[in-house]
Computed example of a mutant assay.
Amino acid sequence: MIVTIDGPAGAGKSSAARELARRLDFQFLDTGAMYRAVTLAAQREGIDLADADALLRVAKGCEITATGDQVTLNGQDVTREIRASSVTAATHHAADHQGVRAHLTELQRHAGRHRDIVTEGRDQATVVFRDAECKIYLTASEEVRAERRYIDLVNRGERVSLQDVLDQQRDRDGRDKARPQGGLAKADGAIRVSTDGMSHDEVVAKLMDIVQQCKPTGC
């Protein structure tokens, strides 16, 4: 069974999807981390991220795992490093690159083949797994999402302002929605869940109820 969780940045997708997968005993696939890992690899090589050919070369040369609680890039744990503001601000280069998207889409489909998975991102229900048995669109208000991101960054030791985080989020939302391939959108049949005012446990409990309703008869 495939459970897709799409939605904007800061809606709580990663933490909720990871815990949902744990409770279901499913594999967790963090697709956003894959784009971040490509971006980090390109930054490490010092390439111009606007150089489409160079960026695709880097992407195809990366060995990325983004399942479970750890993200690795060419065998190195980069789980924390890919969440830095410098990576977040530049990830759109990889996300907007059609060749990179096509490459990572195939990797994601391979990861989900013949497995029970919970996968989260922007285009999991609309592009990658259109036939998923359970599609969820997780969202929250702009202010709530920005505050969550701000707290996360501060806890990681970064010096940022809430306004800076909000401005960056608005730019990212605009790019995500305008992207011609894999743009952020609620898939037909996806169940919308707003996490405003909900605790982490309440969100996961809600998602568990939805998955149980979506499970094929006999599962």
Rank of each mutant, 00 (worst) to 15 (best):
Y137N: 04
R156C: 03
G121V: 11
E81W: 06
R109Y: 08
A125H: 10
D30C: 05
D25A: 14
R170N: 12
I5K: 11
R145V: 09
A41R: 00
L184G: 04
R18I: 03
A66R: 11
C134P: 11
I136L: 14
R23F: 03
R149T: 07
T72F: 10
R113E: 12
K60I: 05
R130S: 07
A125Q: 02
M198Q: 11
A89E: 14
R145K: 10
I64P: 11
G7D: 01
L40D: 06
I117N: 01
A132W: 00
K13F: 03
A52E: 15
A190Q: 03
V100E: 01
H110A: 14
H200E: 14
A140C: 01
E45W: 01
K60W: 13
R192H: 07
G7I: 00
L20G: 10
E143M: 05
D171G: 13
V71A: 00
Y150L: 06
Q163T: 05
N155Y: 06
G189L: 14
M34A: 07
Y150T: 05
E142A: 14
F28E: 03
A125P: 01
K135S: 03
Q213S: 12
R159N: 01
A16H: 06
K177E: 14
L184P: 02
D167V: 10
L162K: 15
A95M: 15
G189R: 14
R179T: 14
R83P: 04
A89H: 15
V128C: 04
I5V: 15
V165E: 13
Q213H: 04
S85M: 12
S141E: 00
D131S: 13
I191Y: 02
T65P: 00
R113I: 09
V193K: 05
L56Q: 02
I5M: 13
H103P: 06
D51G: 04
H92S: 15
G182M: 07
D152E: 15
G218V: 03
G10W: 13
D171L: 08
I5Y: 05
E133H: 14
A66L: 09
F28A: 12
M198L: 15
L207R: 01
S15M: 06
A41N: 01
D173T: 01
D196T: 03
E143L: 06
L207G: 02
G46I: 08
Q76R: 14
P8K: 09
R113G: 05
A9N: 07
V204C: 10
V58Q: 07
S199L: 09
D123T: 06
G183P: 07
L29Y: 00
V78C: 11
G182A: 12
S15C: 01
K215A: 12
C214H: 10
R179C: 14
L56N: 05
K60L: 12
L207H: 02
A16E: 02
G46W: 05
V38G: 12
R80E: 11
R57A: 11
Q124A: 02
V118G: 02
A190V: 07
A95L: 10
V127N: 07
G183L: 05
D96H: 05
V38K: 13
V118L: 02
V160T: 12
A21N: 03
T217D: 10
A178F: 14
